[in-house]
């Protein structure tokens, strides 16, 4: 890979990374959301792989392969399976805020991310740090999804967006994480998703719905 094309490839992957996050906000149905999540996992793995090839680091390339398996394969698959068990009417999410407003919010959050990361980018200007704002934007959009989506499964998707963003920041801002840290984080993430999957199943059998607003009775009187 030549040095001229390296920033372009990185920008392409980062663009895909951000676009899928915005796409998750845009879609109503759960199935396309999970598909977008898978694509985002590929984009994340691509970012790490590009970094690895540029730095001639075998370890980073291995991590990229692992990330691809986990974030583009295992996690969407688990979410897909949880969706498969859901009845037809539960396959659609009803956002707290409508789609148009959500997309505007995503734009505002991206702007905010660019504004906030300016000093970080200025600290060490390079093609990798130049796409750092995108990763921060994905974190914010993931958080936003978590806040505004009602279904338990769409919240899982929001959480995974958030985590993808954090992982991307970690790789872009540093010159690569120790393998053991990345392994630990990934393992944690897998556990979280498994727990959430079980929780979703329990929610459905107990309340007949996965709408988290039904849980309001639980607060302290």
């Amino acid at each position: 890979m030549t040095d001229i094309s390296y920033p372009q490839y990185l920008d392409l992957a980062a663009g895909l990374f951000l676009l899928t996050a915005v796409g998750v906000l845009w879609r109503h149905q759960l199935a396309p959301m999970i598909r977008l999540l898978g694509i985002q996992g590929v984009a994340l793995a691509a970012i790490v792989a590009i970094l690895g090839i540029h730095q001639h680091s075998l370890e980073l390339i291995l991590v990229a392969v692992g990330l691809a398996v986990l974030r583009a394969g295992v996690l969407p698959l688990l979410a897909w399976r949880a969706l498969g068990e859901a009845p037809a009417q539960a396959r659609e999410t009803r956002p707290v805020i409508n789609t148009a407003a959500s997309l505007l919010a995503a734009a505002a959050l991206t702007l905010l991310a660019y504004a906030v990361t300016r000093p970080l980018v200025a600290l060490a200007p390079s093609p990798a740090t130049a796409v750092l704002p995108v990763a921060v934007a994905v974190v914010l959009i993931g958080f936003f999804t978590l806040v505004t989506r009602r279904r338990a499964l769409s919240q899982v998707v929001g959480f995974l967006l958030l985590d993808n963003g954090i992982t991307a920041i970690a790789f872009l801002a540093t010159s690569g994480l120790p393998l053991i840290v990345e392994l630990g984080v990934s393992f944690d993430l897998l556990l979280v998703v498994l727990v959430l999957q079980v929780l979703t199943g329990r929610l459905r059998t107990t309340f007949g719905s996965t709408d988290l607003d039904e849980l309001q009775e639980l607060h302290d009187q």
Binding site: L112, F143, L218
Partner: peptide, 28 residues
Amino acid sequence: LANGSVHRYLAYGFFGVTGLLLVLAVIR
């Protein structure tokens, strides 16, 4: 402040983080 809605609790966190980032962006 704590009415039991998970969304509200998440929103506290979200607005806390974005608010802080906004303040940082304005100050710097």
